[in-house]
Design a protein around this nucleic acid. Structure first.
Length: 388
RNA sequence: GCUGGGGUGGCAGAGCGGUCAAAUGCACUAGACUGUAAAUCUAGCGGGCUACGCCCUACGUAGGUUCAAAUCCUACCCCCAGCA
């Protein structure tokens, strides 16, 4: 019943599955399709909360595993939650630690009960279960909690993918139960700690096996979550496979619930996924690639550290009207990167996050205007894998 | 002037008879990065080829010893330290 209140579809595209919508949270409304920058350890790397506000960021990500290890739940608890701790007033989604099951393969062991992690910081042993992951996310004060899942690698055998999606479903049930129990238990306490203001989303797995994806989607839909994520994608599989999985999964998910493609992505991916019915994204790409000197522009990506930009006094993106593009040249950023100046990392991250957020804003408008398909075509015609 | 130390690829700096076109770092040239163990990682980096191999030119300069020299010897030219 919470589910039906938290998401609203405002407009749909006639020529695709794209839709414009709105997610309600305890920390404001999120206009979808939306892109969320990733702030793993209570920080979108190099950016401040006020930077994100200026860019009109509606949602950011935090990470259960990382924040649990450091600074620890005692600190976040005393701070009054993650919002207060990092002075972020808008919505926060927390990842459950499921991705760390994938990315820290050497440091963890999976059992039915949960996952045993060897801390990457000091080697200490920790155990994350569905119940524990929910508890941590509630302490963080997350607006959107994610179920604890097993994110399998790519490539992955069909057998592994099947076992993985099945345990993800069993864990999803346990997460849901833990969330509801907490809701009943603490429901009457301080308003900003009220779990009933939060929502727990399920995660569809199944690697790139169509039948497994369908099975996973069905199992999770039966559990009736207020939102659904597509996990285990953009982990190295061919782009066509990713698109196929998105397409067949969004077909099976209820139209009145938001669909979240985890870990995506590039500007091209965003257009494609919205086309296929995705409402929400998160990705480290704008910040990580920004720190590594790669900038998004409407003509394609730029490896700004490369020699040709030494004397390129054009804006980062000539087609962009943002403050950064109006003020700083490619040559300047090139110089900052070459000299190892910290401002390079910040400016590049700022630009890339701004680029994706603005892109999503435009996409929302195009959906409302009914011009999504033609605008998508126009964008992709000028966006190349290597810009100029 | 004497004594001692040293001159190696763009720079710093290993090597001290063959396995050396020469470790390593920096610089440089590209590429990668998708729910962040990432301000990171990978590759290339003397020249030329009928290129998983071959041929040139290279370790201050010029000679020499040796089957073989960046590595040993001689002379010369520079640099540094100490003494005059």
């Amino acid at each position: 019943m919470i589910a039906t209140r938290t998401f609203e579809v405002l407009a749909t595209c006639k020529d695709s599955k794209a839709r414009r919508g709105r997610i309600s949270t305890a920390h404001g409304v999120i206009d979808t399709p939306v892109f969320a920058p990733v702030g793993t350890q209570a920080s979108v790397k190099t950016l401040l909360s006020e930077d994100l506000e200026k860019l009109d960021t509606q949602l950011i990500l935090g990470n259960t595993y990382h924040l649990y290890l450091r600074p620890g739940m005692d600190v976040i608890g005393k701070a009054g939650g993650l919002h207060k701790f990092m002075s972020w007033k808008r919505a926060i989604l927390t990842d459950s630690g499921g991705y760390q099951v994938f990315s820290m393969e050497q440091l963890r062991r999976i059992s039915e009960e949960g996952v045993e992690f060897r801390s990457h910081l000091d080697g200490s042993l920790h155990f994350l279960s569905p119940e524990k992951a929910v508890e941590i996310q509630l302490t963080l004060g997350s607006d959107i909690l994610m179920c604890f899942d097993e994110c399998p690698p790519y490539p992955c055998s069909e057998d592994h993918a099947k076992r993985s999606l099945e345990i993800t479903t069993r864990w999803a049930k346990r997460c849901k139960a833990a969330h509801e129990t907490a809701d009943r238990r603490i429901g009457g306490s301080a308003p900003d700690r009220r779990p009933s203001g939060s929502q727990l989303w399920g995660i569809v797995q199944g690697s790139i096996f169509p039948e497994l994806r369908k099975e996973s989607a069905k199992q999770l839909v039966d559990l009736d979550f207020p939102g659904y994520a597509l996990g285990g994608l953009s982990v190295g599989e061919p782009q066509a496979a990713m698109h196929e999985m998105i397409s067949l999964t969004t077909e099976l998910l209820p139209a009145d619930r938001p669909r979240y493609l985890m870990g995506v992505g590039t500007p091209e991916d965003l257009w494609e996924a919205v086309d296929l019915g995705i409402d929400q994204f998160d990705c480290v790409l704008p910040t990580r690639n920004g720190r590594n000197g790669q900038l998004f522009t409407s003509a394609g990506k730029l490896n700004l550290k490369n020699a040709p930009y030494r004397e390129d006094f054009r804006p980062i993106d000539p087609a962009c009207d943002c403050d950064l593009c109006a003020r700083y040249t490619r040559a300047y950023l090139h110089h900052l990167f070459r000299s190892g100046e910290l401002s390079a990392l910040r400016l590049a991250s700022l630009h890339n996050v701004a680029f994706l957020i603005k892109l999503m804003r435009k996409i929302r408008q195009f959906i409302s205007d009914g011009t999504f398909k033609e605008e998508k075509k126009k964008f992709l015609a000028t966006y190349r894998s290597q810009g100029e």
